[in-house]
């Protein structure tokens, strides 16, 4: 028989205490956000309607809908993806399939980490200096999307690299042994088995790109435009910037309006993130080897 000593009892008590403490901290981390979400829905929910989503703002942005901002965000995200997905996937393929384990690869990895860590406003300055001024794109969807693309590139690279590396090396060797070139192996065996993982990364990037504000402020997004953009060299409104504008720059906005905009924005971001997470879990459950 084991005698439970006082020391043991004390230890066990301590353990329970710590467990509860840490659980409380976790809950406290999460609780404010749930409260905030609740408040957004409570105060902004009433304004959301089909009309709100699909009409233009009126009366100096104090009334009406958010359609041009939504439309512009779709434009910005789409163009950004067109640029960052090919580059990001190529980079991931290089890092996962070709890169030797040496100092140069380490520098690439450092650059990726830093690209993700550079403040968004510095990305904005870069966008102004490079795309707006140097390449003479002006303040346009193109300049803003390129800035966003470079800023969110690490998201695609990291997610794609992870899903490429999850494909076991034995498959590659089996393919090489049959006389397949590296590229044939990547195209026929590695990529098809990584593509869904890459997709979750892309969805995540869409969500990131949707919420970014600072990088587009001076590169292509406008406070207010009476018309929709016709092409990539036009300026556009954007949902994230619209939230900033209606909550800080416009006097006399009814209280519900910015809450409504915030609710739409946060809903878009969270829904896309949830899709990405759900997709990832679904893939994890579905064994292919």
């Amino acid at each position: 028989m084991f005698e439970i000593s006082d020391l043991n009892k004390r230890n066990q008590k301590k353990q329970k205490l710590f467990q509860i403490l840490f659980m409380l901290m976790t809950l406290l981390l999460i609780a404010p956000v749930l409260i905030i979400l609740g408040t957004l829905i409570y105060k902004g929910g009433s304004i959301i309607s089909v009309d709100f989503l699909f009409t233009h703002p009126t009366d100096g942005m104090t009334a009406g809908g958010i359609f041009p901002a939504l439309f512009g965000t779709v434009w910005l995200v789409a163009v950004a993806l067109l640029v960052s997905v090919p580059i990001g996937v190529a980079a991931a393929i290089y890092l996962s399939e070709y890169a030797p384990d040496n100092w140069f690869t380490r520098i690439i990895n450092l650059a990726i980490i830093n690209l993700a860590g550079v403040p968004s406003i510095v990305h904005a300055l870069f966008g102004v200096g490079a795309f707006v001024i140097f390449f003479k794109f002006g303040t346009s969807i193109l300049a803003a999307s390129l800035t966003l693309a470079i800023m969110t590139l690490p998201v695609v690279i990291v997610a794609s690299r992870e899903s490429l590396q999850a494909v076991p090396k034995a498959f590659r060797e089996a393919c090489w042994n049959m006389g397949a070139t590296r590229w044939q192996t990547i195209r026929r065996v590695v990529l098809p088995n990584a593509v869904s993982g890459i997709l979750t990364g892309v969805i995540l990037e869409v969500s990131r790109t949707t919420g970014e504000t600072a990088p587009i402020m001076f590169t292509g997004a406008a406070f207010f435009l009476p018309f929709l953009p016709q092409g990539v060299f036009d300026q556009t409104m954007a949902l994230s910037l619209h939230l900033f504008v209606v909550s800080t720059q416009v006097p006399g906005v009814p209280e519900a309006l910015p809450y409504g905009v915030a609710l739409v924005l946060i809903a878009m971001v969270l829904i896309m993130n949830s899709i990405s997470i759900a997709f990832r879990m679904y893939l994890r459950g579905k064994k292919k080897w």
């Binding site: 494909v167 034995a170 498959f171 089996a174 090489w176 042994n177 006389g179 065996v189 080897w289």
Partner: peptide, 20 residues
Amino acid sequence: IYALRSRIGVVFPLPVGLPL
């Protein structure tokens, strides 16, 4: 060497069914 490998078939003891 791809041309070389395509003329030599190998089977190793650890079987690898490709995920195709």
